[in-house]
């Protein structure tokens, strides 16, 4: 089932084009939104989350049109949103904060609400910290708490803006477990610039660069963009798009390989680099030509 259908979304800030002709589809499962800093990821997530209106294009979330007040309300009732910098009332306990968000999500019946708050705190592994003041929680715990708040009410669409930033490897793995479980039943849109997150979690990936969708497909298809363009050799290659010494002592290169190069299987990172790096080069050339 199509959860989100965005067609030709556009947004300008004064003379700056933040998004242009952004078209993509989300279905049940985890979709990664990948792109460099400043690509427009957060802006796009805010539009889908009904926090910002688009200047142009159409957006349908489970068939609802967020540009109309009833449609926006319907979308907000189906939505869980973890912003990039989730804020907290520091004097609240973990329980009180999630309870507050549950009230914002119209869960007013006390017993039902408290049961739901306990459920999501348990889901993110904060059962034993429910009475802790937020200011006493570590960064990883706060991030899990923000996720718990996003999951209140069992939303059908969950939007997570860089949820794994600042987490240590173990916390990141726990987060992946949680999000993967969620993706089995729900539609999850996950913004990140961690290609490992995309590879390990996402069924679909959308690459956004300078406000435009550069790619929409599976992670394997994204990696496939670099097929025949990744090779290893003993020395650095100056002409490659990227070239670095790996732990094995060999240099790995992405770009146009010389004849007879030892080609290797591309990773999603190679695919991403091919896509974004080529666009950056083209843009630089176009800029130079002007």
């Amino acid at each position: 089932m199509t959860a989100v259908q965005a067609t030709g979304l556009a947004l300008r800030y004064g003379r700056t084009t933040a998004l242009e002709d952004v078209t993509f589809t989300l279905r049940t499962g985890v979709t990664g939104l990948l792109g460099p800093n400043g690509a427009g990821k957060t802006t796009l997530l805010r539009i889908v989350a009904t926090a910002l209106p688009a200047d142009g294009g159409t957006l349908r979330v489970f068939g609802h049109d967020p540009s109309t007040p009833p449609g926006r309300l319907a979308v907000r009732r189906l939505l869980g949103y973890l912003p990039q910098d989730p804020g907290f009332h520091p004097s609240f306990t973990a329980f009180e904060f999630v309870d507050y968000v549950a009230i914002l999500k119209e869960l007013t019946h006390r017993a039902t609400r408290h049961t739901e708050v306990a459920r999501v705190l348990s889901a993110v592994g904060l059962d034993d910290r429910r009475r802790s003041r937020i200011r006493t929680l570590s960064g990883g715990m706060k991030q899990r708490l923000a996720l718990a708040a996003a999951l209140v009410g069992d939303p059908d669409l969950v939007i997570l803006d860089e949820p794994t930033v600042g987490l240590d490897p173990e916390q990141r793995l726990r987060f992946r477990e949680l999000i993967a479980d969620l993706g089995e039943r729900k539609t999850v849109l996950l913004s990140t610039h961690q290609t490992e997150d995309v590879m390990s979690l996402c069924q679909e990936v959308v690459v956004l660069d300078r406000g435009r969708v550069r790619f929409e497909g599976t992670p394997t298809e994204l990696a496939g963009l670099a097929a025949g363009r990744v090779w290893t050799s003993a020395a650095r290659e100056a002409g490659a798009l990227a070239s670095w010494r790996t732990g094995t002592g060999l240099h790995r290169h992405v770009g146009d390989p010389p004849s007879g190069a030892a080609l290797v299987e591309p990773s999603i990172e190679d695919g991403y680099l091919t896509l974004v790096g080529a666009a950056a080069e083209a843009s630089a050339i176009a800029g130079g030509a002007r």
């Binding site: 926090a51 939505l79 949103y81 804020g87 907290f88 009332h89 968000v101 914002l104 999500k105 119209e106």
Partner: peptide, 12 residues
């Protein structure tokens, strides 16, 4: 308001 963005997209 630290929870401004969360409150904006809430159905309340």
């Amino acid at each position: 308001d630290p929870t401004y963005e969360i409150a904006v997209v809430a159905p309340i």
